[in-house]
Write a protein that binds this DNA or RNA. Structure first.
Length: 634
RNA sequence: CGGGGCGUAGCCUAGUGGCUAUGGCGCCUGCUUUGGGAGCAGGAUAUCGAAGGUUCGAGUCCUUUCGCCCCGACCA
């Protein structure tokens, strides 16, 4: 496997260069190896020999077009929920993507490695993630009963390696990366390749002696990711993100904006502010005024904020609502679990962002509380607040909207009653944090502009891990003064299959796929409609020898079938061999992305024309590439 | 994990307790055809997801179970 990976990394560019300069690389006569038909060129293929077939109808369950076409064109096949095989066409595209990734990772000093998918659980116990990650991580025992896990990421393994390899400041900075399978037992795989359980990820890990070094590596990735996505033809935006289970502080996600995405992205229409809704901030108004006396009032049939505001004829902005959750708190060192009621209090006109609440509560997991659990704390659902409630067993998180506003209406923990003029600090207490969910139309926290929300797919992320892993796993180095210090780490991921899925979603029309030339499995689809196979074979040969990758439709099929399959697979350039034009020494050429463009090339100059066309299509991708840089905040 | 839906040939699908399980695509054979999923003739392929039950009789009803999909919870 290793050698195959290595072989692959001798890019096709290199091979084609060799072919151009050394005539002996071209094979003029077909050969046979054993009983298998000889495939004359790995980077080209005959349709008659292609392993996969195309499907006329979409298999049930293909609910988005990109996924449907990947299935119908024979790029991928599903094995189980969230588990897919890559067939030759799909794998070829994936290899093209991986090659781009390798080139850009190498360019920022990355060294490729390969780490095991099966890990002894010990290292995961060291960081505590063996305990803090729920069933998303699959575990098993080996034959002698040792705990093992299937790696869902590789911080533990890479830190284990680094604590051996890196012992001195002289051995840093370092950057390693791998392109490796990950297994995450997602409770709900969906949307084809977008959200799967087994997937290929490029993950890289940086090691530095100080924050400045980490910033440098982070900035390098920040830009390299734009180059990677740009070269595949996928336009992404970068958003501020939550570091979630990774630990660490600064992180960004690369988002492909699309309605099929599951992440909600908040962007400002006036400035460059973008963030995942999980962490997005916005400008709140506060209603500070002189505190008035707490007063209990009868509010029959007002279990909701809307009903309450209606009944009291006040704005929801003058109410405080409490949201009851149950948090799971796991001790990282031994896995002991504790459940506590978490009460999020927010002004009635705002919504709670659960991710923010979970972070503020420092909980490992959060779920809605059942009414019995709420009642057990002495709180009456529908008329609940934490006023007059013992707070030793519950965790109260107050959004700053309630903490900085006065005289709000809050529940009195009695059916049909509320308090007027409740005030934070005077009547109740809690940890103050921003736990409000940013919504479309709210004011930008940076510039006051209007926020907008859109859907996106996360195709990459970058994290500043800091010393979260080096400290817990004892990955220390000696500095210039002989002092032991924890290595400062970063981790950076790209979902390879998800990237292909996004490209399929972005690049298709009603006939099929239309992947960018940098990613398409082959550059040219050679469709032969002539009886005389000899001339077609010769052209196929010529193209291969020129280093152009070709899918050659040599099947005994009707023209309609061949065209339909060519459209479905959607290679960037289609060369059609027809009797009429061939008689004049010409072939017809169509560009998949531009159906109106009908070209006719002389056979004699075909190769040159192809090279120009390929170059043009490649340039189209790189010319529209959008790059951004990142600088650490002062 | 909660709610819903679906499992019938490689794919899509008909079937509403009653005879030998429907049709299309695909597949195989022969002939014909070769510029947009062609035509004619013939053919193969289904333990109706699995197990149990009700019934004279079950693809169809009931129970259990497995799998897949959708919504939600969940999600680096």
């Amino acid at each position: 496997m290793n050698s195959a990976t290595l072989l692959r990394s001798f890019s096709k560019r290199l091979i084609s260069m060799m072919r151009v300069y050394h005539g002996e690389f071209s094979l003029s006569t077909p050969r046979r190896f054993g009983t298998m038909p000889f495939v004359e060129e790995k980077l080209s293929m005959r349709m008659s020999q292609l392993f996969s077939k195309t499907l006329r109808e979409a298999p049930a369950g293909a609910d988005n077009k990109g996924y449907e076409y990947l299935l119908r064109a024979g790029f991928i096949r599903q094995l189980g929920a969230g588990i897919f095989s890559l067939l030759p066409l799909g794998y070829s595209s994936v290899k093209n993507i991986e090659q781009i990734i390798r080139e850009e990772m190498d360019a920022i000093g990355g060294q490729e490695i390969l780490m095991p998918v099966v890990n002894p659980a010990d290292i995961w116990k060291e960081t505590g993630r063996f305990y803090s990650i729920d069933r998303e991580m699959s575990r098993f025992q080996d034959r002698v009963g040792r705990d093992m896990v299937l790696a869902m990421t590789h911080e533990e393994v890479v830190t284990d390696i680094a604590r051996f390899e890196i012992d001195s400041y002289k051995r840093m900075p370092q950057l390693v990366y791998q392109i490796q399978t990950k297994w995450r037992d997602d409770p709900r795989p969906r949307a084809g390749l977008i959200r799967v359980r087994e997937f290929t990820m490029k993950d890289s890990y940086s090691f530095d002696t100080d924050q400045a070094g980490l910033d440098k590596q982070y900035a390098a990735h920040y830009l390299a990711y734009f180059k990677i996505f740009g070269r595949t033809g996928l336009s992404t935006i970068v958003v501020g993100a939550d570091s979630g289970m990774m630990g660490g502080k600064i992180s960004h996600e690369y988002m492909y904006l699309s309605p099929i995405g599951e992440d909600t992205i908040i962007t400002c229409d006036a400035c460059s502010y973008t963030a995942n809704r999980q962490v997005a901030a916005f400008r709140k108004e506060y209603f500070a005024e002189e505190m008035k006396e707490l007063e209990k009032v009868h509010t029959p049939e007002c279990p909701t904020i809307e009903a309450l505001a209606e009944y009291l004829k006040i704005s929801t902005k003058l109410t405080a609502k409490a949201v009851f959750m149950v948090g799971t708190f796991i001790d990282d060192t031994n896995g002991e679990e504790e459940q506590r009621l978490v009460v999020g209090v927010i002004r009635g006109d705002l919504e709670i962002e659960e991710n923010k609440l979970q972070n503020a509560a420092k909980a490992n997991a959060l779920r809605s509380a059942h009414s019995e659990e709420i009642l057990a704390a002495g709180i009456v659902p529908g008329y609940g607040s934490v006023i007059g409630i013992r707070q030793d067993k519950i965790l109260v998180i107050a959004d700053d909207s309630v903490a900085k506003s006065n005289n709000l209406v809050a529940g009195a923990n009695e059916e049909g009653y509320h308090y007027l003029n409740s005030n934070f600090a005077r009547d109740w207490n809690g940890t103050v944090a921003d736990i409000a969910s940013a919504q479309s139309g709210y004011a930008c926290s940076e510039c006051g502009g209007t926020l907008k929300s859109s859907k996106g797919v996360e195709v990459g992320n970058i994290f500043q891990l800091g010393t979260r892993y080096s400290e817990s796993m004892d990955c220390y180095y000696q500095d210039e003064n002989g002092i032991q210090k924890p290595v400062i780490m970063g981790s950076y991921g790209i979902g390879v299959g998800r990237l292909l899925a996004c490209l399929a979603e972005e690049y298709h029309d009603e006939l099929g796929l239309n992947l960018p030339i940098t990613v398409a499995p082959y550059q040219v689809h050679l469709v032969s409609l002539v009886k005389d196979a000899e001339i077609a074979e010769k052209i196929y040969r010529t193209l291969i020898d020129a280093g152009i990758t070709v899918l050659y439709d040599d099947r005994k099929e009707s023209a309609g079938v061949k065209f339909a399959d060519a459209d479905l697979i959607g290679l960037p350039i289609r060369i059609t061999l027809g009797n009429r034009s061939l008689k004049e020494g010409k072939v017809e050429v169509k560009v998949r992305s531009n159906p109106d463009e009908q070209l006719s090339f002389d056979l004699a100059t075909l190769v040159d024309k192809m090279r120009v066309l390929i170059k043009r299509l490649e340039n189209q991708i790189t010319d529209s590439m959008h790059l951004e840089e990142w600088k650490p905040e002062k």
